[in-house]
Design a protein around this nucleic acid. Structure first.
Lengths: 203, 203
DNA sequence: TTGTTTACTAAACAGTGTTCAGTAAGTTTG
DNA sequence: CAAACTTACTGAACACTGTTTAGTAAACAA
C-alpha cells in the first residue's frame, strides 16, 4: 500500500505550495507584505494550516533563504569556468554585489535579516558553509598561483567576504545617504575596484 | 511673558523624557521590547501622547540612533590624540568593532536597521556624514604620510569602512554560524588583523 | 460498519503602530 | 472675574501581526 508514500508526497507538495506563495509575495511586494495571513489567502487555505507544514514563520523564511542560495549558486556557475584564479575571485565579488542589487530583498533574507537564522539552534549554517567553501577554494587557488602570499585561506576568505559584504550591506541599508544619490553607485564601484587592487597587491 | 519659551522648554523636556524611556527599554530589553505602548507605560502617559512629540516610531528611532552616535564619538575621542596616522586608523577600526560587540542593539540601530533611515527623505544623513569625514581625514593623513599611495580619500575611506563594517555586520547578524562558536571571535580578530596588514601593504 | 487517525479551520489571544473624537486644564481676551 | 479660545492629553478604535487551540469533517484501518 503506497498510502504513506502518497501522503508524504502530498505533504511535500503542500510545503512547496506554501513556499511558492511566500516567494511570489516576497518578490512582488517585498518582505513586509509577507504575512502568514497573506500567504494563506494566496493559496486559499486558513492561516492555521501553514503551521501544520512549517513550525513558525522563521522556518518558512529559512526555507525561502535556501531558495535564494540555490538561485545565487546557479548565477555563480559560469564564473567557475574561469581559469585565472584572481579573475575568478573578482568576478565572484562583482556577482555578489550584482545579485544584491538585483534581488535586494532576497539578499537581505540571505545575509542580513536575523529571522531566518533563529531556526538554527545547535546545527550550523549549511548554505553559508557551502558558499564560503566555494570562496575559500578560489582563495586557495590564488595562494597556489602565488597571487596571494602563503596564509590561512579561511581567514583570507573571511576578510575578502567581509570586504565585499561591507558596501553591499551599507548600500542596501541606506548607509550611503551622506552622498548624493547620483554618486552612490559610482563610489561603490570605485571602492570595489580599489579593494580588488589592494588585495591584489597586499594579500 | 516667557510663556512660549517655557512651553518650548517643557516640550523639549517631554521629548527627552520619551527618548530616555525608549533608551532605557532599548538597553535593558533590546529592540523588540521597545513598543510605543511600553514607552508610554514607562513614562506613565498614554500611547497617543508620544505622537504629539514624535511624528512616528521611525522618528523616535532616528533620535535614538543620534544618541548612539554621540556615545560612539565620545568613545573615539582618545584615539584622535594618537600621532601615528596608521595606528590611529587601526585603533578606529578596532573601536568600531568593539563598540558593535559591546552595544549590539545600538550599533544595529546606527548601521543596520532601515527603520531610522526612513525619516530622512531628501536631506542627507548628518551623523553618518560627520563620522565618515572623521575617517576620511585620517585616511588623508595616511596619504600625506606616504603610508598609502596618492588617491581619492573618499573612495579609500569607503573601502576601509566597508571592510571593517563587513565582519561586524556578518557577526552581529549571525552569518558566522558555519564556524563553531568558540572559533568565531578568533577568526574575526585574525581577519581584522589581515585586513590591516593588507591595506598597509596594498593601499 | 465502527473506530481511529489525519487535514483542516474558526475563533481567539496577545500583541503591534497609528488615528481621532472628546475632555479637562491653561491661557487670553472682553 | 467670566467667557472664549487654545493646548495637552487620553480612551477607544482600526487594521494589522504571529500563534494556539478546540472542534469538525473527511480519509483510512479494523
Amino acid at each position: 500500500m503506497g498510502i504513506v508514500e502518497r501522503k508524504e508526497r502530498e505533504r511535500e507538495e503542500m510545503r512547496r505550495l506554501i513556499l511558492g506563495a511566500a516567494q511570489k509575495l516576497f518578490i512582488a511586494n517585498g518582505y513586509e507584505k509577507v504575512s502568514i495571513r497573506n500567504i494563506a489567502d494566496e493559496i486559499e487555505y486558513s492561516p492555521a494550516t501553514i503551521y501544520l507544514y512549517y513550525k513558525d514563520k522563521n522556518e518558512l523564511l529559512y526555507a525561502l533563504h535556501q531558495r535564494g542560495f540555490q538561485k545565487m549558486v546557479e548565477e555563480f556557475q559560469p564564473i567557475l569556468t574561469l581559469t585565472n584564479p584572481f579573475e575568478k575571485l573578482v568576478a565572484m565579488g562583482r556577482s555578489y554585489i550584482q545579485f544584491a542589487v538585483a534581488n535586494p530583498e532576497l539578499f537581505d533574507l540571505m545575509f542580513i535579516m536575523t529571522a531566518p537564522m533563529e531556526t538554527l539552534e545547535k546545527e550550523d549554517w549549511e548554505e553559508g558553509d557551502r558558499a564560503f567553501n566555494l570562496l575559500m577554494q578560489v582563495v586557495q587557488e590564488c595562494i597556489d598561483a602565488n597571487v596571494f602570499r602563503k596564509q590561512d585561506p579561511q581567514v583570507a576568505a573571511m576578510m575578502i567576504w567581509s570586504g565585499i559584504h561591507g558596501y553591499t550591506a551599507l548600500f542596501l541599508r541606506k548607509r550611503m545617504h551622506m552622498f548624493p544619490e547620483c554618486d552612490r553607485q559610482q563610489i561603490m564601484d570605485d571602492a570595489f575596484q580599489l579593494f580588488c587592487d589592494t588585495i591584489r597587491r597586499g594579500l
